[in-house]
Design a protein around this nucleic acid. Structure first.
Lengths: 342, 342
DNA sequence: CACAGATTGGCAACCGGTTGACAGGCTCGT
DNA sequence: ACGAGCCTGTCAACCGGTTGCCAATCTGTG
């Protein structure tokens, strides 16, 4: 009779802590291991016993302790999501996508921020490693070696970055960029500025490269401005360089920068789109109510989050990454572009 | 010599799993309990031993397993944050505040969404209870009884809702609302509409009540429109009722609704602010680049997140809630208000 | 009716830490 | 020289589950 701490003797008393399988076992007259089997090994026990135990567990409101299960099994039923900047609106839908899928499959979401620092990101990932079944890295600042090292410990999924041998997703930027350039060409623009994001950003380089290639095909010239912070401030700060470049249209690394640029234009008396056409990237919350409404290249961020969670969990549970869904960007025409003057 | 699984015999071999205190113990020739004490009971061991163990732990890259520690201690070093809607921009800064404070104090953040459903919220809270040291509930849809029941199991902190006996924070809405009404009165508005949020929202009722009281003091009349969804759509849908009410100015439950209303006005040919003055609430991301820029009542959401995390962790660690910081709203004058016509 | 094989449930070890109790060795005072 | 008391490190139990292995019981068959 090893009476564990919870037994309060004869009187029911108020239970000290949460109900455990030991309580359920005692109340249904079986051993703890039997309770464990009844609950997560259906069919292993006789139908009678299983049903009885389930009823008792239900009646007393038993809930398993995820940590206690994690210890022997190594499975935490938790996914970690590391972002460089939680308040960047570009991530909201992505976070929701991950959370919904995770919750729907019985997983918990751990959220962490790396504050745009590679060191902090690595430290954070290490810190989380033991607590999660897998990690989603979004727009990571880590180098390939660090990423591979992490992937050796736990399943990893990388969003907006391609790393050989590591599962991940990068929405195809080509269709959006082509459509945007077609639109600008049609309006008569020949010289386009690319307002680059952070120098360490793989995605900013990809967008820049793709843009340069697509511009070449259309006989347009690209001048790269930046790098700059991927924020409103970063966009605001770039106005002067853009004007100096002589470009008649700008494609910004993301909507935040584009919006900052819009603001700088208003403040500086540059009329958009008459004097300068501006195109953003991602279609974040708010870009349809800037003034003028921002023309942009939409990234399906909710779907990206879905995909990340789905495939990460598939890797965790079945050891294989699930089916890949093709994800593409799309040009969204609003009010911030027009033919150049003259 | 109970050689636990990790021992790979003579050759170093590649370690199976993560490094444990058992590994550190073996390598430094002490017992596991000594390692544990060296690491988190400074002074309990001789300086020599402690230093030696620390060095070994460092050298082999030991990291404690938070779950393994949580089991005997009951302390997970994790805080849970439950939001009704992750993509609502009102929460971004709040989430960041919580995450920063938590991370700074060595805590992990678990994020969950209740999708505006009380049942789902309760279920989520129950599910998370064993995994966290405490829970932050934001704009909860739970009733007081449920909240108290949760608070009996783990420390709880409630944001934007007052529940007797439960620690929480509600930024003072009075100064912001008074200033807003003073401004409207000055411009000559007499009849104001309040565009209410969800019927279950405590905060919406508080804002409505406070507004009614402040209006009374100024001899203005308030007509309440709604309830409505706290979203862009909710705001858009309300335009007709507002026009019908004859009010010359609207104060919306939040910026999302105010922004939706702005859009409906543009679509419906109602000029803002000439024909209708619109004031939002919270000053979320984006409300300074609507057209016209939204006049609003700012809530210091980052500080609210800070406060929540700080005081929750104080409650967890010291059993007492920490010092309260007074948090107040503030009127932010931008471009969506003007004197009424006529 | 005996016995093989399948069912059913329990024992005990294990996951990786923490911590109360305790033993051996030291230091120190007298 | 001897005992009190301190310092240091170990032992073992525990947190709440999971799971390999085994024993007892039940079933069916010849």
């Amino acid at each position: 009779m090893t009476e564990r701490q919870n037994g309060t003797g004869t009187s029911a008393g108020r239970a000290r802590g949460p109900v455990t399988i030991y309580d359920v076992a005692r109340l249904s007259g079986v051993s703890p291991s039997t309770v464990s089997r009844a609950l997560n090994n259906p069919g292993r026990l006789s139908a009678d016993t299983e049903k009885r135990i389930r009823e008792v567990a239900d009646a007393v409101g038993y809930r398993l302790n995820p940590m206690a299960r994690a210890l022997p099994t190594g499975r935490t039923h938790t996914v970690g999501l590391i972002l460089s900047d939680i308040t960047n609106p570009v991530y909201f839908d992505l976070v929701r996508g991950v959370e919904r899928v995770a919750a729907g499959r019985g997983y918990i979401l751990i959220l962490a921020e790396s504050q745009e620092s590679a060191d902090l990101e690595n430290e954070t990932a290490q810190r989380l490693l033991a607590s999660v079944d897998g990690l989603v890295l979004v727009a990571t600042r880590l180098d390939n070696a660090d990423i591979r090292a992490l992937a050796e410990r736990k399943p990893l999924f990388v969003v907006n970055r391609k790393v050989r041998g590591i599962p991940g997703v990068v929405p195809d930027v080509v269709p959006g960029i082509r459509a945007a350039l077609d639109h600008l060409a049609e309006q008569g623009h020949r010289s386009i500025a690319y307002l680059a994001g952070p120098s360490g950003s793989w995605m900013s380089r990809l967008r820049g490269r793709t843009l340069a290639a697509a511009a070449g095909e259309r006989g347009m010239t690209i001048v790269e401005i930046g790098p700059g912070e991927p924020t409103l401030q970063g966009g605001q700060a770039a106005l002067q360089s853009i004007r100096d470049s002589g470009a008649t249209a700008v494609l910004a690394y993301n909507d935040l920068m584009a919006t900052g640029l819009l603001k700088a234009c208003r403040d500086g008396g540059v009329r958009v789109p008459e004097e300068l056409s501006v195109i953003g990237f991602d279609d974040i919350f708010g870009s349809d109510f800037t003034s003028p409404p921002l023309t942009t290249i939409r990234t399906p961020l909710g779907l990206v989050g879905d995909e990340a969670a789905r495939r990460l969990i598939a890797a965790v549970e079945k050891g294989e990454e699930g089916r890949r869904t093709p994800l593409a960007t799309e040009f969204v025409l609003r009010g911030s572009t027009a033919p150049p003057r003259g």
